[in-house]
């Protein structure tokens, strides 16, 4: 197990290297002169020149990439063109709201989606199954911002159950934290719930027709244990896989959700940075999100072996 973990961690290094190269190249992939793009329409030629120098654009690409990479490895993501503050510092300040939102979304999504999928598979063909499937199709086809605005209008503006927008740090109390994040997490989670519920249902349908489920019933195992112990554990690998893949969409959705609910997180930071063409900040955030995604998928890989003993390290 330990050796496997080490191997998996090492295997992420080339992935991260490619990600880093891509993130660094962002500036150059965009068409036109990066310095002019950053400087914007109203910039004087002197401004453009100053930016060109500060970015070191006059030196060879590979040299600059290597230097940048070394600094990144030491935790130095550069300095924001707009605020002149260190990018790593700016991201750090915004991490808590974003991670809070994602964590709560995951918890809500899993605790709803998995029972829903299991129930739909068990009651296949009944109105319960159909209801779950209708919800799954809807949750998947309505965009996050629409769900967000509808939720905010109904439950915050009309019913006044939750704050309309904003964020309250965990340090100021769990209740405030939760009530601020509840609607955003539901909005962000609706597509995720739909995705996981569908894959859970499909996988469970297949598992429930297996011989070992019949064996469990023949032993006198009750319905709940048949579903949630004997069957669900066999359905775990596809479900975890889809969670890992869906995490990318969750990151993208978080950026939108933070804008809708005015949550001062990394998503808002990157949206602002894009509007200001603050490339070091954009690079830093993209790098951080990519890193998170790689880590999540590393965890997914390790979880496979926990749920399925046949998967060899």
């Amino acid at each position: 197990m330990f050796a496997y973990t080490v191997r998996r961690v090492i295997a992420t290094i080339p992935v991260m290297a490619v990600v880093a190269l891509f993130v660094f190249s962002l500036l150059y992939i965009a068409p036109g002169d990066p310095a002019a793009i950053i400087a914007g329409d109203q910039a004087t030629p002197e401004d453009v020149e100053r930016i060109r120098e500060s970015l070191g654009l006059d030196r060879p690409f590979l040299l600059r990439f290597t230097e940048w990479l070394f600094r990144v490895l030491q935790g130095d993501l550069g300095v924001s063109i707009f605020t002149n503050l260190p990018v790593s510092h700016m991201i750090q300040q915004r991490l808590e709201p974003t991670f809070s939102l994602m964590a709560l979304t995951l918890v809500i999504a899993l605790s709803f989606a998995i029972p829903m999928g299991v129930l739909a598979a068990w009651k296949q063909g009944t109105w319960i199954d159909r209801l779950v499937m209708v919800f799954a199709v809807m949750g998947f086809s309505v965009p996050v911002f629409v769900v967000g605005y509808v939720l905010a209008y109904t439950f915050a503006l009309q019913l006044d159950w939750f704050p309309v927008q904003g964020y309250s740090p965990l340090a100021n109390g769990f209740g405030g934290w939760l009530s601020n994040l509840m609607l955003p997490a539901i909005a962000l989670g609706s597509a995720f719930i739909a995705l996981i519920a569908r894959i859970t249902r499909a996988t469970m349908l297949e598992v429930l027709s297996q011989d070992y489920v019949r064996t469990a019933r023949a032993k006198g195992v009750g319905q709940r244990s048949v579903l949630f112990v004997h069957a669900l554990k066999n359905a775990a690998v596809p479900i975890i896989t889809i969670i890992g893949i869906g995490f990318a969409a969750l990151i993208g959705g978080a950026v939108v959700t933070e804008s809708v609910f005015a949550i001062p997180g990394v998503g808002r930071l990157v949206v602002d940075a894009i509007l200001r063409r603050d490339y070091p900040v954009i690079q830093g955030v993209v790098l951080m999100f990519s890193f998170t995604y790689v880590i999540v998928n590393l965890i997914v890989d390790l979880l496979y072996t926990v749920f399925d003993p046949r998967i060899r390290y």
Binding site: Y212, R214, A218, K219, G220, V221, H230, A236, D308
Partner: peptide, 24 residues
């Protein structure tokens, strides 16, 4: 019926390769 299955009446199936739960 659940109280009877596996206690008073139990069953062995034809397919030993697929009748045991692979993850338990």
């Amino acid at each position: 019926m659940q109280a009877i299955r596996g206690k008073d009446i139990s069953m062995v199936f034809q397919e030993p390769m697929t009748s045991l739960n692979p993850v338990l």
